[in-house]
Amino acid sequence: MSKKASINQILKHPTVWQGRQRLSSQPVCSTGYEALDQQLYEGGWPQGALSELLLPAPGVGELRILTPLLKRLSQSSGYIVLVNPPFIPYPPALRQQGIQIEKVLVVRSETVATTVWSAYQALVSKSCAAVLTWLPGRAPYRSEVRKLTLGAREGAAWAFLLRDESAHLHASNAQLRLRLTPLPQGATQIAIIKQRGGWQGRQVVLPLLSEQRAWTALPAAYWPCYQPSKPADTMLTPALANAIPRAIDKWLQQVSTPTSTTPPSIH
């Protein structure tokens, strides 16, 4: 055996780690956000693996960050399964973002055991492209995470676990762990807690709710709520309901920049 051949043999060995070489063995799908893709070692959401999204509360952009992936997956084969989501998905909004809702299945379960079981069944079925699982509370969920990881690997699906951000204190089997923190102006800070093969601790800020730039805040003076300190004519009654748009127009003329993003301060 020549020397070169023996080196090649060593290089082929799976336990030998080689610096500066990306193991593109695992298929990935781009997140749709260039800034995030660059920070991820794999360059996107890994297929056949569990990714964790840690949230302080629902509604911090967790669906927006997955929307490009879900949009792409819903256009090819495979279902998208939401297991125990905290609220009802709103079909017009999903359609607006390009997700085909005909492919979306919602599973409702009552206990953690059945939630994980349902998600596992969907993952290993080889007919679900993406499975999003919500787990309540702050438990470590070690065995549950392990089960979802195994399921994702077997079914070669994109598995996501969404749970409370306090879980970052616990170890997890997930290949990729992201923590989402909302910032003002509709942006979300994404911190990479763990990723296989790459550096952890990186942060990236994504304008997930980008529409906010176009919003125009209404000054508190025109809020239609009960304000005893104001004159009676500004109190909104059904008869005066039509006065509101006119008032807004008037106010828009007053302010110099109509697309100001500054929310009015209320004290």
Partner: peptide, 20 residues
């Protein structure tokens, strides 16, 4: 089949389609 299994164990209304 996975939807069948979920329905069989958790009840008919546990696995739902999103309809607009």
């Amino acid at each position: 089949h996975f939807a069948n299994k979920i329905k069989a164990r958790l009840g008919h209304n546990s696995c739902l389609w999103l309809v607009q």
